[in-house]
Design a protein around this nucleic acid. Structure first.
Lengths: 108, 108
DNA sequence: TGATTATGCAACCATGAGGTTGCATGTCAA
DNA sequence: TTGACATGCAACCTCATGGTTGCATAATCA
């Protein structure tokens, strides 16, 4: 079910707080929930929910160490979305721009 | 305001119907609202709302021809998101994977 | 053991997103 | 001019989302 997976990834990336969490993990991998909460202006439970969504989208992997939950960034889903959806718009970017330009000129 | 713009793009891409609309425009640029409605399982107004969101995110450009509204794909915002957000996760993809592996091994 | 710390779980609430329907407006064609 | 067609605008509904609070559980430390 590629489509479903992509849906989860796109949906997960739609929220700025979640992108911020990914940025934090990119800067420093393996942070605990407590660590990640420090710079978030919301309750621990809210952050926990965001991380759960990132986990379901497989953007974040977790690992228990005692009572601490460590969070690791997994860039693979981002890569997949890039590869099978974004890339196609990339390759034809200039073509489409020129195409748009000529079409607009033709109409006016 | 780069952040706001990116928010709009990410939010716009989060909905499967809107990604489908972009796919349709990628396959055939310059379609009217009516054209785009044909293969969508929702009312014309719903499609119109989706297109408005894509327009606000600058993913779609429009042009009036008489009573018809033509829709053109603009891949630039996708490229920008790719360049200033996705790319950084791409470049360090393998590094992070190996990093995760070593960290997990270290703990167990 | 007992207190503290890190996290999970569940109920709840407000808001916004996605959808609908009904009507208004402007353009084309007979 | 008149009717049909393409679209916009606005009100409304439902439900998912993002947030909260309160309590439960498990691990650590004195």
């Amino acid at each position: 079910m590629k489509g479903r997976d992509d849906d989860r990834v796109f949906a997960a990336l739609a929220d700025p707080s979640r992108r911020l969490l990914l940025d934090r993990l990119f800067a420093e991998n393996g942070l605990t929930l407590g660590n990640l909460c420090e710079r978030m202006k919301m309750s621990r439970q809210a952050v926990s929910k965001h991380l759960a969504i990132l986990e379901r989208a497989r953007l974040v992997t977790t690992h228990w160490r005692g009572r601490e939950k460590l969070h690791y960034l997994n860039p693979v889903p981002i890569h997949q979305v890039q590869a099978r959806w974004i890339a196609k718009f990339e390759t034809d970017r200039l073509d489409l721009l020129s195409d748009l330009k000529t079409r607009l000129e033709r109409k006016s």
